[in-house]
Amino acid sequence: MATTTVDRTARTRNDASVAARKRAKSPYSNWFYLPAAIIYGVLFAVPTLTSFYFSLTRWSVFDSKFIGLQNYVTFFQEPGLVSGLWHTLLYGVVTSGLKVVLGMLLAVLLTSQIVARGYLRSVVFFPVLVSTIGVGLMFTVLMNPERGLINQSLSIFGITGPGWLTDPHLALFSVALVDVWKGVGLATLIYIAGIVSIPQEYFEAARMDGASSWNTFRSIIIPLARPATVTVIILSLIGGLRSFDLIWSMTRGGPGFTSDVIASVIYKQYQAGFYGLSTAGNVILFVLVTAIVLPLSRFLNRKEVEL
């Protein structure tokens, strides 16, 4: 915080002197924005803005016809689609919560004095880089109810494993678990960066005062790693709410609609040719993500300043 304010004052002072000297022509040409702005504007901004209009139309391959809020009515009347909304929320909250807890614990473990720290860090992080589709297909095989490795191993201990992806109550959570398996490395990495940046003095002082490791964790690491927590929550919520490829490669929203999320609904409606309905789903996802992420990040960041 302190460094950024210093930076900013330095920058404004510099701005003033540069502006005074070269008022006529800045060496930092605004034209530099243009090429990126064209690509971004045409392929991201325009579709995002027009999506609000198209979500109000009945839209097929040939033409689009304005029908008001009909698509949204359809969306919220169809139980299969509404449940997608809840699943999206559930999926986002579960993955984000687990990533925070596990990421924090793993980071504490991986910053402590432990053998093979480098190996452990690498092995936890590597799944982040692997193709989501590959991970999804692999776990579909591992989670096979009869022959899959997971249930085979459980049966050694006399436990009959559930049908991870075939049980309607479980499918969404199984996919969420795989998402956590793949993504926890990034959360851990962010937490490690956060914990390493805590000044050593705090830990020394705690040791002087005879704090137990639990006390150190509770009173030093958790509050001082707060920026990392904020980052992990926000990032994994954005990722989780938008998540599509893992769910699609593992269950395709099944069995039934029990693991359908908005992103998979969008794809299904698109495939079925209901472009307007698909776009309405997109707008709902957009509203959902911004309505959750923006206030949350404002709230979490405000707390950070008070601390």
Binding site: L43, F44, V46, R242, N282, V283
Partner: peptide, 15 residues
């Protein structure tokens, strides 16, 4: 916005 907003797929196809 580019970081947060999910891209609107069908309108992108249209463009």
């Amino acid at each position: 916005s580019g970081l947060i907003i999910p891209p609107a797929v069908v309108p992108t196809i249209w463009v």
